[in-house]
Design a protein around this nucleic acid. Structure first.
Length: 500
DNA sequence: GCATGATCATGC
DNA sequence: GCATGATCATGC
């Protein structure tokens, strides 16, 4: 044995010896040393230069640590209470982010609700102490040729543990309510119940309902992993140039208190300002800006944040959205997101769709303003929200697939009005109860290419002076959430808590 | 009046 | 130059 399997520190020491080696080198060393585990035929993939099915975690377990990969509920190093996780990160515009959530263990609905206390649960065996090994995933390169960059033992900081305990209780509560089929990763903050299984048809029994629920696993959310990577790994690297807005990011909760329910805490802070008008809030919170995001800025200020990001929200993938309800009881505008890439869209299946995954993972913090008879908007309240799983898998999926098919099959049709407006045949708000597709760019000349080999068709042009410039390019579009849908969700939410 | 298409303002 | 968050404006 090259390491003391009863000692976390020694396991970490031995793990760190991998740093700088590629997974291929780790494998080849195991072959050279006659490691019996690599005779397994699953390692054929490595020679075939396909992406090795077992994943890098398996490879490290067998080739480096010399134990057979398994799916035991016990931690990988049982005698030391250490779980091994090998996880990718990726380069983004500003620095690096985790590539994936960290999947910990499958949720056994029939048993898990009996383990009320996280610290004595099965999950804790996989979460209490983790040896994390990170590698950089590069698009177009087989992960087998990535190197192990960082190896470090990780235990949850006290303030994060409090929040994760609440997340755990929330997940259990849904199972106890017989609603396991409604679980969603966006329900919770750092610890998520992510979908797990080869297809949407992987379902399991639940204890308090006859409805079969999608198979899910406990995981640390992608946003939380990104935080860990930056805060505990990259910040410690002498050569790493730490840039971007994350340096010394403000926190909602000050460091000398422990808060277990972040959402209640946040809503209480907002509630102190209910009834005040926008102008009154701007004065009270010393907000000079007239920027278009001033309402979101007001919300941050109510939470004691001067900037426009909060550490807790970033870790939990929560975005602040202000909602203005008009006198007539309606929300004027639908909600927009980032434009999508037509070429990437057509190569994707729903299970990997950017928009579908975004909705599953994203949690929203809605701050509501209500217009009075006098035309003045006053703070009405706030709530946290994420889209119900079945709304995502139903109507949103339909719109997404229809949109993808139009672009994939080159079926985009335009009609140009006498006034020069360009009408298209993408899904409209009136077609679907939840979402639609609309332009979202600087203006309509802000275009990106259509999928290769396809072009749009101008079906009719009644305008004299506008012609579509290039039939292989189209104005940037994004998915929008219908204003009516958001309103109905708010109604349901407040009906479920108290009168709004 | 409202749905859909067009565009704006800011910050990084 | 683009992402983000938002609002404006035309025409059915």
């Amino acid at each position: 044995m090259r390491y003391d399997e009863t000692d976390p520190i020694d396991i970490e020491r031995y793990g760190k010896e991998m740093i700088g080696m590629s997974f291929r080198e780790i494998f080849e060393r195991a072959v050279a040393e006659g490691n019996p585990l690599v005779a397994d035929k699953k390692y054929m993939d490595i020679h075939a230069d396909k992406n090795f099915k077992g994943g890098m975690g398996n490879l490290v377990e067998e080739c480096w640590f010399g134990y057979k990969a398994n799916s035991n509920p016990e931690p990988d190093f049982e005698k030391a209470g250490v779980e091994l996780k090998v996880t990718p990160y990726k380069a983004v515009k500003k620095g690096f982010s985790a590539k994936e959530r960290l999947v910990l263990t499958l949720i056994d609905y029939m048993e898990v609700y009996k383990e009320k206390d996280l610290l004595s649960s099965h999950l804790w065996k996989k979460l209490g102490c983790i040896l994390l090994a990170w590698y950089l995933h590069k698009d177009g390169q087989n992960d087998i040729d990535s190197t192990v960059d960082f190896v470090q033992l990780f235990t949850l900081p006290a303030e994060d543990l409090e929040i994760i305990k609440t997340d755990y209780r929330k997940i259990l509560a849904k199972i106890e309510a017989g609603k396991a089929e409604d679980l969603s990763e966006g329900d919770t903050l750092y610890l998520g119940a992510c979908t797990k299984g080869s297809s949407a048809k992987s379902v399991r029994k639940q204890p308090f309902s006859d409805v079969e629920a999608k198979q899910r696993a406990f995981s640390l959310k992608n946003s939380y992993m990104t935080y860990l990577l930056n805060e505990y790994i990259l910040k410690q690297q002498p050569t790493y140039h730490y840039e971007g807005q994350n340096r010394d990011e403000e926190s909602i909760i000050s460091s000398d208190v422990l808060v277990d329910d972040l959402e209640k805490y946040v809503q209480r802070k907002i509630a102190a300002y209910i009834g005040r008008s926008e102008d009154e809030l701007a004065v009270a919170l010393e907000m000079g800006s007239n920027a278009k995001n001033r309402y979101a800025m007001l919300a941050y200020r109510m939470l004691g944040i001067k900037g426009n990001s909060a550490q807790e929200f970033r870790k939990a993938n929560i975005v602040v959205k202000t909602i203005r309800i008009q006198k007539n009881g309606k929300i004027k505008e639908s909600m927009s997101f980032s434009p999508f890439d037509f070429q990437a869209l057509v190569k994707t299946e729903w299970e990997n769709s950017v928009f579908g995954n975004f909705l599953q993972e994203q949690r929203f913090f809605f701050v509501l303003f209500q217009e009075g008879e006098d035309g003045i908007y006053r703070l009405k309240g706030s709530c946290f929200w994420n889209m119900p799983y079945h709304d995502i898998e139903g109507p949103v999926r339909e719109v997404w697939e229809r949109t993808r098919d139009i672009f994939r099959d080159g079926k985009l049709m335009l009609d140009i009005t006498p006034g020069g407006l360009v009408r298209n045949n993408l899904p409209k708000a009136s077609d679907n109860m939840i979402c639609h597709v609309r332009p979202h760019g600087a203006d309509r000349s802000d275009m990106i290419p259509l999928p290769k080999g396809t072009h749009l068709t101008v079906r009719s042009n009644r305008s004299k002076d506008f012609e579509w410039p290039d039939d292989t390019m189209f104005s940037k579009q994004c998915f929008w959430l219908n204003n009516d849908y958001i309103l109905s969700q708010l109604r349901m939410h407040f009906a479920g808590t108290k009168k709004a």
